[in-house]
Design a protein around this nucleic acid. Sequence first.
DNA 1: GCAAGATCGTTAGCTGGCTATCCTTCGATG
DNA 2: CATCGAAGGATAGCCAGCTAACGATCTTGC
Lengths: 154, 154
Amino acid sequence: MVKSVEVMRVNAALNKMSQLYRVAKARRLGELGLHPGQDVLLWQLAQEPDGITVTELATRLGVEPPTATRSLARLGAGGWFRREPVPGDRRQVRIVISEEGLKLIPRIEDAWNDLADQIIGSATVAERAIVLSALERANDRLRADLGDEAPDGS
Amino acid sequence: MVKSVEVMRVNAALNKMSQLYRVAKARRLGELGLHPGQDVLLWQLAQEPDGITVTELATRLGVEPPTATRSLARLGAGGWFRREPVPGDRRQVRIVISEEGLKLIPRIEDAWNDLADQIIGSATVAERAIVLSALERANDRLRADLGDEAPDGS
DNA sequence: GCAAGATCGTTAGCTGGCTATCCTTCGATG
DNA sequence: CATCGAAGGATAGCCAGCTAACGATCTTGC
């Protein structure tokens, strides 16, 4: 078991990080007319030019299907994607990113770049490697603890 | 500027961490009849036996006052705190934790311990030091970027 | 002493996460 | 071929974060 003082600091740091990261991202994305979460959604759509189903999208986002449905509903007004029926299965719908949506991708990636640089840019190469591996290992353990196996999507 | 591949991994890891940490915490807190966020709120109240104002609470939580108001409203039904008028200023209200609320604190801290252990327990002492310092430095930079100066509360 | 500005807390309305539930459609089984 | 279970998507309701804006109160300045 880890020391208690360390635990409190880790807990505090994680809580803050969780929140600050979200707020900082919200600010950057606001300039693009996007809200937090919509960036990852669009980016995932951009990875599959032929489109993906709602459930597949939710899985890649690491989110439950209802959340994906609602995000799409909010985002729908922007015209950044279209819905196409899947031949042979009338239950499914393919979500396909539009031209307008594709244009946003580079700007989204720029925003991510800025943020990541802000967060780990001050660390040395060696430190970054340790932090990154620690982060990914922590995620693995959390995932295992939750009995979940969703790929880490974005 | 950090390399792009690294950026993607950091971004992915942070997004996931943000989410997994919250879900894992939700599970632990659910056993105590609490929702995510309410743990930190109660813990902060416990740090000041004489109570604090809503605005002060919000500041310590690193949250906006309306969020604190609503969290208190939700939590109010549980009887974990009471409201006391502030002599000399009828605008303010002191939120004071109750006996019942105080009883939850050790169990909350236990939950945090479990989580932190799950996250950084597998790292060596040296790695933990690096990760912790990197996390705190990242938070400082994010805070500075946001032009905010809220103390990191919990 | 009165008016203008600042501060405290609350309410309203937006976003996004979750679970539970329902409807439609597909598949598998009798 | 008819039914019943499984799966995809959408809906409803809960929690929590934010900004904008309001009434009440205190403080400041004239």
